[in-house]
Design a protein around this nucleic acid. Sequence first.
DNA 1: CTCTTAACCTGGACGC
DNA 2: TGCGTCCAGGTTAAGA
Length: 270
Amino acid sequence: MPELPEVETTRLGLVPHLEGRQIKSVRLRRADLRWPIPREIKTLLPGQPILGLRRRAKYLLLDVPSGSALIHLGMSGCLRLVDQAQPIGRHDHVDLVLDSGQSIRFTDPRRFGCLLWQPLGQTHDLLRDLGPEPLTAECSGEYLFARSRQRTASVKTFLMDQGIVVGVGNIYAVETLFRAGIAPGRAAGRVSKARYSRLAEAIKTVLAEAIRSGGTTLRDFLHLDGMPGYFKQELLVYGREGQPCLACGRTLSGTRLGNRATVWCGHCQR
DNA sequence: CTCTTAACCTGGACGC
DNA sequence: TGCGTCCAGGTTAAGA
């Protein structure tokens, strides 16, 4: 489900409810997510005040004095704020019960997500080799150009590599490449600096706009209040294979790159 | 190193 | 209605 805008939307929705709260208890129903949920989650979190909820790449970090709970939503995960009375669903794996009476509920049907522990002062291995945040100046055309030299893999695969730049998944890779006029199958090392500048620009505008719209809801991504994200209405190419290009009217092509559905316009993107 | 592929897991959509 | 197949917002491990 979630790329950076959906994770950030989740964070923004949760933050106001966490101010001054503490974690009363942890209800663990199922620990076998992508990696087993470590015992620290169960033993260290209860009784701790919540200091904040940060995001790095597609990870959320729930800070308490002794460290951070590290959360990734995988393909199908979501966090919701629920009341005690909320019935527990088949895929509601963990509740972090707050002293407000509400709980942060982690739901993830496919269990590609994870909930791990990062002790204070340490950086988890999963965060170690991540590239820059896309909405910072570090993610520039110059930077992408420099990192892409000599690389023969497709520019789309390159863009989705979290070691290059974080937060861009399949939907936003397809969208940003369309807006930058770059064919997704082109070798990353054969894209000019000028076009990487356009791409960097597109990454920033598309992600920022998606966050502003509350993310993209394809099937199951919902906000804390159960409302969908509205960026789907602004997708120009994703999911539109065989339909007319909104820029030139020609039929959009579809293929698979790195095993992921890819859509583009053979006329507008080179 | 870089690149490609398979694997993890469940559920929904579709065709027969 | 039921069954098989394919597909889905991500990431890592293994192999070439």
